[in-house]
Nucleic acid binder design. Structure first.
Lengths: 163, 163
DNA sequence: TTGGCGACGTTATAACGTAACATTATTGGA
DNA sequence: TCCAATAATGTTACGTTATAACGTCGCCAA
C-alpha cells in the first residue's frame, strides 16, 4: 500500500476535531503508561492548545478556560503548560511567546517548526540532515537544546490566492 | 599565510574593548554610507548591547543608560533596538527575550546562534549546509525568516573546570 | 520658511511570566 | 482504615517584557 507523500502541513479544510481528539486520547494513554497525572486542568489546557494548528498564547488559554465559568489564575495555566512541555505534549514557540501541540509525543525527537505567516498554521518536522548539519557546524560545542522556528508561507497559502 | 581555524566563540580572556569599539565604529560607518541616522541613543543602546558577548535584556539596557543620569522610558530603548534590528546591527534572542551584537553587519546573512549556558557567551555562525538542509527539509514552504538558537556548552567551558 | 518627516519624549497600559505560601487531593504504607 | 508524604492546585501579589497613542522637537529640502 502506497502512501502519498504527506506534507507536514495539515490541509486547511481537514477535519480538525480528529486531530484534537486524537491528541488528547494519546496524551491520556501516555500519561497512564508513564504514571503521570493527566488532571482536568492539564487536559483542558492541552485541549485549548489543540484548538487549532496555530500557536496559542498562555493568556488565550486562560481566557478560554475562564469563558466556561472557571476562574483560574495565570499560574494554573503556566503550571499545566510546564507539565505538558516537560512531557513532550506541546512545544513552545519562543518567537511568538506561544504554544503548539506536538503531533507525536510518543517518542523524544528534535523538532523544527515551520510557521506560516499567512494562515498561522505550524508544521513540525524532524529532519536528520538539519540536525547533522547543525552538529557539524558547531564543532566543540555540546548541543543541549534547539530552538528552530522558521517562518514563511506554507504550500497551501502559496498555491491559493496570492492576494 | 595560514590562519588557525578560529572558533566562533571568543576566548574568555580576550580584550573585549576592541570588540565593542570596533562594532560601534563600523555601525557609524555603515550608517553614514546608508544615510541612516546613528543618533546618540542608538549609539548608547548598541554600546550597551556590546558590553559583553552575552545576551542583554531591554531593561538591562535601560538601566545602564539611566545609571548615567539619563531618564529614558522603555520606549526609547525599544525604538533604538528596532532600528538596530532592522538594520542588522544586532540580533534578537527570542528564547531569552534578549539581544546580542552582530559581529558582521556589513552584509545580510543567515545566522545560527550558539548560546553557552555556562558562561552565557553567544557565538554566531552562518552555516550554508544548515541553510540548505532546512530548505530541503521544507519542500513547498517559502522560507522568510529563521530563528535558530542552540544552547549547550561552549568549547572553553567544556575544556575548563567541569564543575 | 515652511512643510513634511523622522526621531524622540511622555504617559499609560497591555501582555507575558513567576515567587511564595496556603490548601486540597492522591497515594502508598503502617 | 487512617496517616503521612508528596503532588497538584488555589491565591495573592508582583516582576518583567513590550507596545499604543499622541505630543514635541529638529532637520532638511523644496
Amino acid at each position: 500500500m502506497s502512501r502519498r507523500p504527506r506534507s507536514a502541513f495539515p490541509s486547511p479544510d481537514h477535519d480538525h476535531r480528529g486531530c484534537s481528539a486524537s491528541a488528547i486520547a494519546r496524551a491520556e494513554t501516555l500519561c497512564a503508561s508513564r504514571k503521570l497525572r493527566f488532571t482536568a486542568i492539564r487536559r483542558a489546557v492541552l485541549k485549548a492548545v489543540w484548538q487549532s494548528h496555530s500557536p496559542v498564547g498562555a493568556y488565550d488559554i486562560l481566557a478560554k478556560l475562564n469563558a466556561k465559568g472557571a476562574d483560574h489564575a495565570p499560574m494554573a495555566v503556566y503550571r499545566a503548560l510546564d507539565f505538558l512541555l516537560e512531557n513532550g505534549f506541546i512545544h513552545r514557540i519562543s518567537s511568538q511567546n506561544a504554544f503548539i501541540g506536538c503531533p507525536h509525543p510518543e517518542t523524544e525527537h528534535d523538532s523544527q517548526l515551520l510557521i506560516c505567516r499567512r494562515c498561522g498554521t505550524v508544521a513540525e518536522i524532524d529532519s536528520a540532515p538539519v540536525t547533522r548539519a547543525l552538529k557539524a557546524a558547531a564543532p566543540g560545542f555540546a548541543i543541549e537544546q534547539r530552538t528552530i522556528e522558521i517562518s514563511g508561507v506554507c504550500p497551501h497559502c502559496r498555491s491559493g490566492a496570492h492576494a
